[in-house]
């Protein structure tokens, strides 16, 4: 199972021809208590870097950008009722959306787990 990260702290975990997108544990820690998540509509086509979702903490709203291009095939609507799941389990139950990848080659431009952990160390 391949997981890649962006500099904006989104992750995409590749499962077959789709990627599960969410925010990293570091990102949820920086945001603090998540109180609201706005998800895209299923069927929406996103280009890499597009605003894909919004995550709001008590303090502020932040955009979640699409780490890869593709069609949104599923969203984690459980987050609407329990946004705190993003804090509790960002890599698991706190996922945001599933995107069917248009160009798996885009993954090569993202950071591996190890590169991302080094990146986090360099900024914290």
């Amino acid at each position: 199972m391949t997981t890649r990260y962006t500099k904006d702290h989104e992750y995409v975990r590749v499962e077959g021809d789709a990627g599960i997108v969410g925010i990293s544990d570091y990102a949820q820690g920086q945001l603090g208590d998540v109180v609201f998540v706005e998800l895209p509509s299923v069927g929406k086509t996103l280009s890499k870097g597009d605003e894909a979702a919004v995550v709001e903490s008590v303090k502020a709203a932040s955009e979640v950008y699409a780490p890869v291009s593709g069609e949104v095939v599923e969203v984690n609507s459980a987050l609407e009722a329990s946004p705190g799941t993003v804090n509790e389990d960002p890599a698991g139950r706190g996922w945001f959306m599933k995107i069917r990848l248009t160009d798996p080659g885009e993954l090569d431009g993202l950071m591996t787990e190890e590169q991302y952990q080094d990146f986090v160390k360099s900024i914290s």
């Binding site: 603090g32 903490s57 008590v58 303090k59």
Partner: peptide, 12 residues
């Protein structure tokens, strides 16, 4: 201090 480790919701 904007928050302590327990976070804003718990502090509130």
């Amino acid at each position: 201090p904007v928050q302590y480790p327990t976070g804003i919701l718990t502090e509130h």
